[in-house]
């Protein structure tokens, strides 16, 4: 593998929300900026660029991760999921998104995409989470608007609905 030179743009190939995409990146380009500016996927937000606020959280190969603490060039061949990939169809929201809407889980919505990506990954593996576990997952995110209570309610409601659907299936 050749050494990628600083200051030059290099082609990258990866999967974004199930679709193969490619784009150019300098070695130092952060994944958050790559998604937003190079791929135009502005659903992922940026609130601190030092890994604390969680606004930039995406899923990398299925696991929630900070896009601001990841270089775009590290993502060659990776599968990335962002909030744009959550809804099953353009005119439908996912169960999680629906629950956020119903329970006022968002106000300004700036923290929401990151939180959705964390919860989506978590709920996939934990069918019946308790409140404490959810609080722990959420503690990787800062929300300044809601005080978390409505987010927690939305997450619990979504978990219940997902569990029910899984049971029905």
């Amino acid at each position: 593998m050749p050494r990628l030179k600083a200051g030059q743009r290099h082609w990258l190939h990866l999967t974004l929300n199930g679709k193969a995409v490619e784009g150019e990146a300098e070695p130092r380009l952060l994944l958050s900026d790559f998604l937003r500016y190079e791929l135009g996927a502005t659903g992922t937000h940026v609130g601190c660029e030092h890994g604390v606020c969680g606004a930039c959280t995406v899923q990398i190969d299925g696991a929630p991760a900070r896009a601001c603490l990841t270089l775009a060039v590290q993502m060659e061949g990776a599968a990335i999921r962002t909030v744009e990939g959550l809804a099953p169809a353009p005119d439908r929201l996912s169960i999680l998104q629906e629950a956020f809407r119903e329970h006022h889980g968002l106000q300004c919505g700036f923290c929401t995409p990151g939180i959705l990506m964390s919860l989506d990954a978590f709920l996939r593996e934990h069918r019946r989470p308790n409140e404490a576990a959810l609080r722990e997952v959420l503690s990787g995110h800062l929300c300044r608007c809601t005080g978390y209570a409505p987010i927690l309610r939305a997450a619990l409601a979504a978990a219940e609905r997902l569990a029910k659907e899984a049971g029905d299936a």
Partner: peptide, 16 residues
């Protein structure tokens, strides 16, 4: 100067 020193409470710290 960072969110590691300016401490904003998380879901673990804020009860309802």
């Amino acid at each position: 100067g960072t969110f590691a020193d300016y401490l904003v409470p998380t879901a673990m710290e804020v009860p309802e």
